[in-house]
Design a protein around this nucleic acid. Structure first.
Length: 875
RNA sequence: GCCCGAGUGGCGGAAUGGUAGACGCAGCGGAUUCAAAAUCCGCCGCCGCAAGGCAUGUCGGUUCGAGUCCGACCUCGGGUACCA
């Protein structure tokens, strides 16, 4: 419907009816235009390349606002870099294996494969209208047969290179459902479906030797300049390189176990050791299980979940085994050996030294079981009695760099006491242990090898066979891919691969005899550890293509949630090294991600009322208006909560795009919060974004219509203020985009649009500025930018226009206003020529009336002039 | 428990150690309109008539000057190796 929108005075006299901003129509039109031009198909050419990647989505069923935010940010980078002349790789795929598909099959029937591909189709259809500059020709899902084939080929090469091995590891076992549970399926130590306490159970599983690269993964963090410092810190702490000592405690009364090996980073507290604790799975503990009391505690200890969190938070339990060990520094002391539930056989030696005076966990344990608490050291100057008294109620754990007073020598009773830092004492203790032969200094890592075996169906099959003659044998590459059987059911718990009638049967590539397939599948983190490499040549018949990988690697900008700061990103860093080693990536790709940005979540208010029994009842945003329901009931508003279906505080991107258009959704997602922080979706904010975009469209229409005015032959009115504003905006928006400050870029665009609205400039000068507006907005709102570009006389498409550059001359200011502080408080200001010397500024300031009043005739004690910034008078 | 973050008006936020609150939302006032919507213009941290004072989670410190740096704490969020 046509209507006039032009302001009085700028009304196009002869102009036809203007069209209102109509994103539904124009957005799909521009998307078709880009498609037809093949604008976003990545090409290897003479331009410098730029690889932008957002963490690919799990196909859960529908896209959500978090996806919109994530992909919009990547899209801004892709379009901005494209305008700057880079050849862009900006692909999209699907992290398609995983538990939700199996859960859906269990709950609603159907097959995980069908569920997954249907979800992918839906989500792709939902993403398309966002107008993302994605090369869809490279799309793949990790559950595609082809991806499975290449991943299995990688596995075999890594196996061949010695990067993969098998060992026993514990899992959460649900004794009722007879199945392995994921950590998230263990709630308060009980299985999520059965409600029964889970047990720890040992299984032989496949491991990647990520610890081979522990040193390198840690040291290389220093070079990752484009990564957030917090992520590098988290990874460094996770890898956790520590220097300590492996100590041997000789047993007194266990002839079959002459010694127990213990690793500690605090050998300086050895004199404070009052017990050893061992895992219930330690061989020594297992040998004692004929004792019913020990068996009971061991069984109880095995009932704790396997997660570190569960382990650390669980009530500490233990039992004295009756076994005694001799203290290495004092043969007259015998220490008891306890079984404890917080020690896992998987980590280290399965035994730890208890120094309750200097460790919170050991202290808790010692208090609970009445074990002695002996201080190795105390506050500086403390006597032994004082130090012991101080640790009775709580452990003393100062930083290792802090000097303390050792009250029991760390090299023996009364030997090497006195003031030391923990660091120095640890060094001395290690030296002493080595000299005396009761231990040796070792560097160890917190990082453990990466267990990839999953007792689940919907994952990439591990391509190995079990042969009675040859043992464990890799599948022949010619037989890849090993694909999942499709005729499976999920009506009984457990892994359908295990109970499939024929799938396991295979021929041994070694001896040609009968063999059984491995029924474990790979951790889905394997899939996501190399997908970025696969995007460089998604259709290659090998995992990667050397020329493509060489051109496109590395990822120049990776964008995703901080929840992946450790596992996904560390595994990817490891995988890249493994792929370099096996010849699938060039050496330069061993750090595959040059820059990382972690974006915040999208949140929304929760609207809550209470039922008769005081339980919360949640209401959808559209049911609430003005803080009330339709029937007038007031709702309680809980701000900034993560969007979740159960809390009903969700906004569907499809609804938003239908109602406002993609550009509004994109604009609001970027405008309201800095990208690394959470953003709260608000209806009013979305409406404001929509209004602003409509206003920009109107401005473009008005300026575009200007030549049709009757005075078209009169000279154009220029407006130096507007030109200056435009160049300042170019400068500021460019710097904001470079710094990932999308919200600031948008604030600058508001300012520029306001300047255009105020300006009296006419005709071409105005249109020139509107073309700059179009270019600067294009990365954020690409469809509107095309409209504005076309309306203001731009040639071709805005998407193909090179990024504008600011005219330095237009940015210079001739005078500056300096605030005047007196004793640090703002008391006035002074406007001086920008080039005025500090000495002249001082004179001008001292002449200032407000300054004279404060100084009251006295000379100032100090006068600080920060050129161009501020003046501070100290009276 | 442990590791890592974040906290600024009624709200989202801005601020190379240099005027705290850019820009936007909400609110208030005005213009336009028969009326409304839409649009346009103006005001808008708190207390105070004003002078002025108080304000960046809390408490201390460094500095001519601290939202920004240092120390301790509080609250919320992420991770914690089988959720992705």
């Amino acid at each position: 419907m046509a209507r006039s929108v032009a302001k009085p005075g700028r009304q196009p006299a002869s102009g036809g009816p203007s069209m209102p901003y109509d994103p539904a129509n124009s957005e799909s039109r521009w998307q078709q235009a880009w498609d037809q031009a093949g604008t976003f198909v990545a090409r290897r050419d003479e331009r410098p390349k730029y690889y932008v990647l957002e963490m690919f989505p799990y196909p859960s069923g529908r896209i959500h606002m978090g996806h919109v935010r994530n992909y919009t940010m990547g899209d801004v980078v892709a379009r901005y870099k494209r305008a700057q002349g880079f050849s862009i790789l900006h692909p999209m795929g699907w992290d398609a294996f995983g538990m939700p598909a199996e859960n859906a099959a269990m709950e609603n029937g159907g097959h995980p494969r069908d569920w997954t591909y249907a979800n992918i189709a839906t989500m792709k259809q939902q993403m398309k209208p966002l107008g993302l500059a994605i090369d869809w020709t490279r799309e793949f899902a990790t559950c595609d047969d082809d991806y499975v084939a290449q991943q299995q080929a990688l596995f075999l090469d890594m196996l061949d290179a010695g990067l993969i091995y098998r060992k026993a590891a514990v899992v959460n076992w649900d004794p009722v459902d007879m199945t392995v549970l994921a950590n998230e399926q263990v709630i308060d130590g009980k299985g999520w479906r059965s409600g029964e306490p889970v047990e720890r159970r040992e299984l032989t599983q496949w491991f990647f030797r990520i610890t081979d690269y522990a040193d390198e993964l840690l040291d290389a963090l220093d070079g990752l300049d484009g990564w957030p410092e917090k992520v590098r810190l988290m990874q460094a702490n996770w890898i956790g390189r520590s220097r300590g000592v492996q100590l041997r405690f000789d047993t007194v009364n266990a002839p079959d176990f002459p010694g127990i090996e213990v690793y500690t980073t605090r050998p300086d507290t050895l004199m404070g050791a009052s017990f050893l604790s061992i895992s219930a799975d330690h061989p020594l503990a297992k040998s004692l299980e004929s004792d019913p009391a020990i068996a009971a505690v061991a069984a109880e200890a095995r009932r704790t979940g396997t997660s570190e969190e569960a382990l650390e938070k669980a009530e500490k339990i233990g039992i004295d085994t009756g076994i005694r060990v001799r203290h290495p520094l004092d043969p007259s002391r015998e220490l008891p050996v306890w079984i404890a539930n917080f020690v896992l056989m998987d980590y280290g030696t399965g035994a730890v030294m208890g120094s309750p005076a200097h460790d919170q966990r050991d202290h808790d344990f010692a208090v609970k079981y009445g074990l002695p608490i002996l201080a190795a050291f105390g506050e500086r100057g403390a006597t032994r009695a004082q130090a012991d008294a101080a640790v009775a109620a709580q452990p003393f754990t100062p930083p290792k760099s802090e000097p303390v007073t050792y009250v029991r020598g760390f090299a023996g009773e009364g030997d090497q006491t006195g003031d030391q830092t923990g660091e120095a004492a640890v060094d001395a203790a290690i030296a002493h242990a080595e000299a005396q032969g009761y231990g040796e200094g070792v560097t160890r890592f917190r990082l453990r090898d990466w267990g990839i075996s999953r007792q689940r169906y919907w994952g990439c099959p591990i391509p190995v066979l079990h042969c009675d003659t040859c043992g464990v044998v890799p599948e022949a590459k010619a037989n890849l891919p090993v694909l999942l059987p499709l005729d499976v059911s999920f009506d009984v718990p457990g892994n359908p691969l295990d109970r499939h009638p024929t799938w396991r049967d295979a021929t041994c590539p070694g001896c040609g005899g009968a063999a059984r397939r491995e029924t474990d599948t790979m951790d889905t983190f394997v899939d996501s550890s190399w997908y970025f490499a696969r995007f460089t040549s998604p259709h290659a018949t090998t995992p990667t293509d050397a020329a493509d990988a060489d051109y496109w690697m590395n990822v120049d900008q990776y964008i995703g949630g901080v929840e992946h700061a450790i596992l996904h990103l560390l595994y990817s860093r490891f995988f890249a090294r493994a792929m370099v080693r096996t010849g699938h990536l060039p050496a330069k790709a061993s750090e595959p991600i040059a820059a990382l940005f972690t974006q915040g979540m999208v949140t929304h208010e929760i609207y809550q009322t209470r039922d008769d029994r005081g339980r919360p009842v949640y209401h959808l945003p559209e049911e609430v208006s003005g803080g009330k329901l339709a029937d007038g009931t007031a709702v309680e508003v809980i701000p900034s909560a993560k969007m979740s279906k159960s809390k009903k505080n969700v906004v569907d991107p499809v609804d938003i795009v239908t109602r406002f258009g993609a550009d509004t959704a994109r604009w609001f997602m970027l405008s309201d919060s800095p990208p690394e922080r959470d953003v709260e979706w608000t209806a009013s904010g979305a409406e404001a974004a929509s209004k602003f975009l409509a206003r920009v469209y109107r401005l473009a229409e008005e300026t575009g219509a200007a030549p049709d005015a009757p005075d078209r032959n009169a000279p154009d009115r220029d407006d130096p203020d507007l030109t200056r504003a435009a160049h300042r905006a170019i400068d500021e928006v460019t710097r904001a985009l470079d710094g990932f400050a999308f919200n600031k870029a948008i604030a600058k665009l508001y300012e520029l649009a306001n300047a255009v609205g105020r300006s009296q400039a006419s005709g071409e000068p105005r249109r020139a500025v509107m073309r700059i507006v179009a270019q600067l907005m294009a990365p954020m709102v690409p469809h509107l930018a095309e409209d504005v570009w076309a309306l203001s006389g731009g040639q071709g498409m805005a998407v193909d226009a090179p990024w504008p550059t600011a005219d330095a001359a237009a940015l210079v200011q001739d005078s500056v206003t300096l605030p005047i502080q007196i004793n640090g408080k703002r008391r006035g200001e002074i406007t001086v020529p920008a080039a005025m010397s500090p000495a002249d500024v001082e004179q001008a300031v001292l002449a200032d009336e407000a300054v004279q009043r404060f100084l009251n005739g006295q000379p100032p004690r100090k006068l600080i002039v920060v050129p161009g910034r501020i003046v501070n008078v100290v009276a």
